[in-house]
Amino acid sequence: MYLYLPVALTSINALMPMGLGFAVGLLSGLFGVGGGFLMTPLLIMMGIPATVAAATDSNQIVAASTSGTYAHWKLGNVDFKMGLYLLAGSLLGGGLGVQLIKVLKAMGNADFVIQITYVVMLGGVGGYMFCESLAQLRKGKGEQADAPAPARDSGMKKFLASLPLQTEFSRSGVTHSSLIPLLLGAFVGVLAAIMGVGGGFLMVPVMVYMLRMPMHAVVGTSLFLVLFTCIEVTFLQAYTNHTVDFILAVLLLVGSVIGAQIGTIFGRKLKGDQLKILLAVIVLAVTVKIVFDLTLTPDLLLSQGGGH
């Protein structure tokens, strides 16, 4: 069944965005990522203009992450306190990142910086997670896989413990200075704004490796964060750029809210390290695809602007 999209100004087979929504919703429920890094390019391949694809995807993520946050909250996986600190940090970072983009654009090499940041971050994060979780799986045989990894650098640990405003995050079972999640949130916010993505795939490893939170709490808390970021982005896109396509968003979210629920159910059956290694594989696959796009000669040397 074909439906016409009033903002994208194109017609689409309704089953395609529903199926795509379901697949990306599964990833949300499993890994706590919004999935924009997969969804937006696939929508563009379906003939949706780049600006509409990115804006509508954020509207869809609001639904998927609500569904996922709700499911994880029922399982006790959402650390609201940690989430709010990270959120405050990432909002600050996002504002900073937007300014940084303006400076880069004025210097004329924004696209280069964006692309390189994207490849390096995806490749780095994916590679590290892959190696680390593979080693854990081999070593631990899974018995304690969901427990936080022991801190290796005791000097670093002492320094972190000496910072003021030490706070206990009981849901995650960790104690940090309140400044740490604020700073890390800002760091992710800056990068996410530069790359034009929600930042879930960056937030997850930050919470796992730097905040030392258990993987299941990471997924739930990350979804909670993604929800707020995407509400903000959806509103701004609809208000300033008029690029949110309601019909397309509904088609996507019909699939994604169901996918997020099913993803959460699957996630419960997997161990933390298994989840990490799966996410790492997906992130690495996307990295490889981007590297191919960058190095193979394109068919056409023209493209629509506004992908970021």
Binding site: S67, T234, F235, A238, H242, V244, F246, A249, V257
Partner: peptide, 24 residues
């Protein structure tokens, strides 16, 4: 979408939130 971006945006967000909770 063109003439009432704010209302359109809020409406889209509410529909997304309700569907998410509904599925849950």
């Amino acid at each position: 979408a063109r003439n009432n971006g704010a209302i359109y945006g809020i409406f889209s967000i509410i529909v997304a939130l309700v569907s998410g909770f509904g599925a849950g």
